[in-house]
Amino acid sequence: MSNGIINWFRFSSPQTFYPLAGKLIPWFWALTAAFGLAGLYIGFFVAPTDAQQGEGYRIIFIHVPASWMSMFLYLVMAFWAALGLGFNTRLSGMMASALAPTGALMAFLSLWTGALWGKPMWGTWWVWDARLTSELILFFLYLGFIALQSAIDDARRADKAGAVLALVGVVNIPIIYFSVKWWNTLHQGASVSLTKSPSMAQTMLWGMLLMALAFWMYSIAVSLTRVRAIILERERHAGWIEELSEVKPS
């Protein structure tokens, strides 16, 4: 720390990470509100009606950010799981456990809003095409991860078992993402990707990107809150926790 470079490894200890997370959470909530309000305003009042789908297309302002988050959170979860397996750090496993419920929520939102859109637009709530099925598998992977971890009493062993499951499931992420390219699917191709210019009107795109940012900030805020709870639970016998003002009996 003395040479001006932040020593990031310092924060791999629950004791230093706990107060840092506590300080960051309000900021992420504020950003969630700011991006969310801006995104919803553009989504509902500025973005034009779609030529074919009418007003029903506005579900993308939830559907697409939720789907992106569900895939991205899984990658982050698997990243922490791998770090935990490799370095044997306690905090990594806690981070992975903290991300799983939010990831599951995002996958559920993606499937649910997709079904609501599918009925009026496609004519069906659900089809077993590659995109929808692989996203459903992602949802089950999250649930399986949570179930496996809660089934094992010893936290460190639960982390390890969960990490293996999380890493195996990573294979599914590229399958979800590229499913619409590799196979014929009912689900449309990507409107926004890194390799080509987006095929949607500018204001619609802005609304969607702002909502995506809001979902990012929300996910970070919630996961940090959850990881703090996990730290308190698992390290409850540590001396530093007994010294915390929120724990100390007054």
């Binding site: 034009p48 030529a51 993308i60 496609w122 069906t124 449309q188 191709g189 409107s191 009107a201």
Partner: peptide, 15 residues
């Protein structure tokens, strides 16, 4: 059963 397949283009009626 007949399902409509939407494409990836989202644009306002004028466009």
């Amino acid at each position: 059963e007949v399902l409509a397949k939407h494409d990836e283009n989202y644009m306002p009626p004028e466009a």
